[in-house]
């Protein structure tokens, strides 16, 4: 019973922090929308080209805006000693990572479900494809969150070269991009197998992320 109480308390704390830093989250969304503007200016307002490459633009920008949230995961909690205190109060690191994953997915990726259709309308993408983008993003966004969490925990004590965290995120999210772009471009009979492959990647990442992140946090706490 006590563990449930502490989990709820942790959820409440994460919610408080996210609500206080609401403008930081909105900044990430602003980055996404502004990126689409930049793409439009650099390619030129040609509707036929956008119908072909618009999906790629949207997925690229989702990945890049995921990069901005790397530091949000463990950096602050690690620096002020919160992670260690939470562990001493009886929660395992794996559980903390899992709660962090859920809250970060909720607060950082759910807002995109409102702004992706807007971006699609700005790029003249067909209605059927908008549903498919939302479906793939529903499956793909937890993968993106867990990749950002892995990269954030790998670079906990890294103050010099934080750019390498973004590179790790880009490297690991290549399969997500391949399969989610493949689903949208595929003929109707090939959608289902690719979708199940994407779900397989999701299950793999969700199952290994807590262990990897917990191992990294333990190493960082021992060496700090």
């Amino acid at each position: 019973m006590q563990i449930i109480n502490s989990i709820t308390a942790l959820f409440y704390k994460e919610y408080k922090i996210a609500y206080k830093n609401l403008y930081d989250i909105l900044t990430i969304i602003l980055f996404f929308l502004l990126g689409i503007f930049i793409f439009v200016f650099s390619i030129g307002p040609n509707e036929e080209i956008f119908q072909q490459i618009g999906i790629g633009i949207i997925w690229t920008l989702l990945l890049l805006s995921n990069n901005l949230s790397i530091k949000r995961f463990y950096q602050n909690d690690f620096k002020d000693g919160n992670l260690h205190l939470l562990h001493m109060s009886g929660m395992s690191y794996e559980l903390i990572v899992l709660v962090k994953l859920i809250t970060n997915w909720f607060f950082l990726q759910i807002p995109f479900f409102i702004f992706i259709p807007i971006a699609c309308l700005m790029l003249n993408i067909q209605n059927d494809n908008i549903y498919l983008i939302l479906l793939t993003f529903l499956i793909g966004s937890p993968i993106l969150t867990s990749i950002a969490s892995i990269s954030g925990s790998l670079n906990l004590l890294n103050n010099r070269n934080i750019e390498i965290a973004s590179i790790i995120v880009m490297l690991l999210s290549i399969p997500v991009i391949i399969f989610s772009f493949g689903i949208i471009k595929a003929p109707p009979e090939l959608i289902k197998p690719q979708l199940s492959f994407l779900i397989g990647i999701l299950l793999l990442f969700v199952s290994i992320t807590p262990w990897i992140c917990a191992a990294c946090i333990k190493i960082a706490i021992r060496n700090s």
């Binding site: 670079n155 004590l157 890294n158 010099r160 070269n161 390498i164 590179i167």
Partner: peptide, 9 residues
């Protein structure tokens, strides 16, 4: 990345 990552800390 493996070569770079070792030297980040």
């Amino acid at each position: 990345i493996i070569i770079f990552l070792k030297k980040t800390t």
